[in-house]
Write a protein that binds this DNA or RNA. Structure first.
Lengths: 197, 197
DNA sequence: TACGATACGGAACAATGTTCCGCTTAGTCA
DNA sequence: TGACTAAGCGGAACATTGTTCCGTATCGTA
């Protein structure tokens, strides 16, 4: 979390007013640019939109990924918190898992190219780490509950499942023939233990 | 196929000897560089290895993807041809499908970053098209056979399955916790029709 | 108001894909 | 064999993008 923390809201102390203003402007601008041009939009475009120089971006967000994390942080948080809630509110842990996966897929699919970036090799380790660190434990909890309830077979690791789901969401745009949800449903069905009478 | 064809072996007529020599050298060099540095290796590296200028690469292979296609063409071909063979040699079409998918995964996983490139947005349409055009029909044949044999439920499209498998193979390196094969196995299990007694 | 630390802007650098063009050379024809 | 022409070549040059650096401007304070 170290890198991410540094770039979070942290309104605490001893920061110049213009710095705070710029940080906020950057978050807003980045969110807008990401929404229209996708997560791969050039840094310069975000800087221009926020009306600051590129240097300013790099001071606030040491690497591109830190900016992305900051922009989507609250959404990731919401997704993480939905896990335990769903588990508590749903009779079948498998159903809870299914709904939670739906939420996660919604999130990935809404952001153009987020999934791509998530798995990209180059320098997006911070992003990758943050998302996974935050969500894998939640997923694990759901998986464990479903195993305990005898609804799915044990042996699948949350990390692997999450990455698989993330991967399946890559390239969803630009091709109506490819709908990751159908495959993810297949995956979950494969997970399911056949009801033993 | 248009783009791919142009850059294929086509030893036919009216090409200068040095051009042919260079084309061959480029294919060899590219194969070596791809093997060691991955599919994302800089064009310049390939040019250097082949002892030619970058201009020469672009004359023979108008875009990067054309070079990749040319390098892996025969392997894709082999995979495509394995489909019908497996189907003929195996009693259960589902088993044939499973083996064929294994072959495909082998291929993707062997080439560093091929899967990534396959799904990349930027300008790799030729690559994407070639692989999919060639292999989707083969996969469809296997799927159909398995459906006809009552081994899997109908409704899954070969294109979607292929892309899903391709996606799952992304980022396999660099993380022992992630093994795409396990997830692909899950996917196939999800496809399977429960034996109705 | 003056001063020091903080923050800013954007030029500059590096990596990479791609294009362009003057020079070289293979193949041909007398 | 010796030109001649078109095919082919090399690599400089251009465009794009991430990232760093540093001289300058600004904020907060004494």
């Amino acid at each position: 979390m170290s890198t991410a923390d540094r770039s979070a809201q942290a309104p605490t102390r001893s920061k110049r007013a213009d710095a705070l203003r710029n940080q906020q402007a950057l978050l807003t601008a980045a969110a807008e640019v990401f929404a229209t041009s996708g997560i791969d939009a050039p840094i310069r475009a975000i800087a221009a939109r926020a009306g600051v120089g590129v240097g300013t971006i790099y001071r606030h967000f040491p690497a591109r990924a830190d900016l992305v994390v900051a922009v989507y942080r609250h959404q990731v948080e919401a997704c993480a918190e939905a896990g335990p809630t769903l588990l508590a509110d749903t009779d079948s842990p498998l159903t809870a898992l299914r709904r939670w996966v739906d939420l996660f897929v919604d999130f990935l699919v809404t952001k153009h190219g987020l999934a791509n970036t998530l798995e990209s090799d180059s320098g997006f380790d911070a992003l990758h780490s943050y998302f996974l660190d935050r969500l894998v434990p939640v997923c694990a909890q759901l998986l464990d509950a479903a195993v305990d309830a005898g609804e799915i077979t044990p042996g699948t690791h949350a990390y692997e499942l999450m990455r698989g789901i993330g991967n399946l969401c890559i390239g969803r745009d630009s091709d109506p023939r490819y709908d990751p949800r159908r495959l993810i449903e297949l995956l979950l069905q494969g997970l399911q233990r056949p009801p033993s009478p």
